[in-house]
């Protein structure tokens, strides 16, 4: 779900006619009278709006903590204000740069690999001729998406285990290695293990939107190209791929916006003390050096940094994209 929230781009596809009608009615009747008439609509939305305010907007108020020397138990006006001190501290901490490096490394890897593979997979699925086989592959490929990261981390650890793990057994069987590799203990492998796990989990799920986009391509294009003697490979390259170009670019921008928000579940669950130098991401850093040490203000400063960079990235990429293609997603 995290990677797929483009629904937000489609705010209010209003029908202008309906809107102007509603506008006219407001003026005729007056605001309060309409409000009274729509009391059931208000009853159905207002409680949840308040709910969203409490759980999504109130935490934003907590951002003030980053500029205080926050002590739990004190009221808001009794807190000591320290300005940007926590940010200065943050930017002087080596572990912060390590966490930033790891976050960027894993998100860029995820973006490159995790973005391209579902596109290829969707195009290959589309080329499968046996409908039953195609269905089966699709259904199976959705499975890992529904399984929790706890389970996936368990499976990955099991497969990479030195005691009867499938990967080591396979490599030993092929005589490519002489003794089992301790995958989970090798820091420099960690980024790739996380990326591969992510691809394994979400590859099938991420094809859904591409497959839907492929459905929208005019079948006559394929027929015409076949008459011209285009091979299947050329059809994929010259018809299918251009046909889903817009979908690809929209999803790409959405991904960039989440570049720093790669989550931390996989790193938390797959990581261990031996690989910490490579597994520590920003959010885990906030968790360990902020929350678990009781340094609430410091941890909040990390979260703010994360959010601000994400927003800047999203707007920058959207701006560049707008220049190039005259399309915008926001």
């Amino acid at each position: 779900m995290r990677t797929l929230t483009p629904g937000g781009t489609s705010k209010n596809p209003d029908t202008p006619a309906a809107d102007s009608n509603a506008g006219k009615r407001f003026k005729k009747q007056g605001f309060w009278r309409t409000a009274l008439q729509q009391r059931y609509l208000y009853l159905m939305s207002l409680p949840f709006v308040i709910w969203a305010f409490v759980f999504s907007y109130l935490p934003l108020w907590g951002w003030t903590m980053a500029f205080q020397d926050f002590k739990p138990g004190r009221g808001f006006f009794e807190q000591e204000w320290v300005g940007f001190e926590h940010f200065v501290q943050l930017f002087q901490d080596d572990r912060f740069y390590l966490a930033l490096r790891n976050t960027l490394a894993m998100s860029v890897l995820g973006l490159l690999v995790g973005f391209v593979i579902p596109i290829i997979f969707a195009m290959l699925l589309n080329e499968l001729r046996g409908m039953i086989f195609k269905r089966f592959v699709q259904t199976v490929s959705y499975l890992p998406h529904f399984v929790s990261w706890v389970v996936v981390a368990g499976l990955v650890t099991k497969m990479l285990s030195t005691q009867g793990g499938a990967i080591n057994d396979l490599l030993l069987g092929l005589h490519l290695i002489n003794e089992p590799i301790q995958f989970m203990a090798k820091g420099e492998w960690f980024w790739y293990i996380v990326t591969a796990s992510d691809v394994w989990k979400e590859m099938g799920w991420n094809t859904i939107i591409y497959l839907a986009a492929i459905t929208g391509i005019d079948p006559e294009l394929y027929e015409a190209s076949r008459v011209d003697g285009a091979s299947r490979y050329r059809q994929m390259w010259h018809i299918t791929l251009p046909g889903i170009r817009t979908t690809i670019s929209v999803l790409f921008i959405m991904q960039i916006g989440h570049l720093l928000q790669i989550g931390f579940e996989k790193q938390f669950l797959l990581g261990n003390n031996l690989v910490q130098e490579y597994s520590q991401v920003l959010e885990l850093y906030a968790l360990q050096y902020g929350l678990q040490m009781g340094r609430f203000s410091y941890g909040t400063a990390i979260s703010i940094f994360n959010s601000v960079v994400s927003v800047i990235l999203l707007f920058t990429v959207n701006g560049i994209f707008k220049r190039i293609s005259k399309e915008s997603i926001m």
Binding site: Y57, P59, L60, G62, W63, P72, L291, G299, T300, S307
Partner: peptide
């Protein structure tokens, strides 16, 4: 419902929650 008065407001109000989040610690404190 196109005639609902508070529609624009509610819609924007909700969409914002998709992009902005307080982060780990503010949520914990809340």
């Amino acid at each position: 419902r196109p005639d609902f008065q508070a529609r624009k407001f509610t819609s924007t109000f909700l969409v914002v929650t998709m992009y902005v989040s307080g982060g780990l610690i503010p949520v914990y404190i809340l």
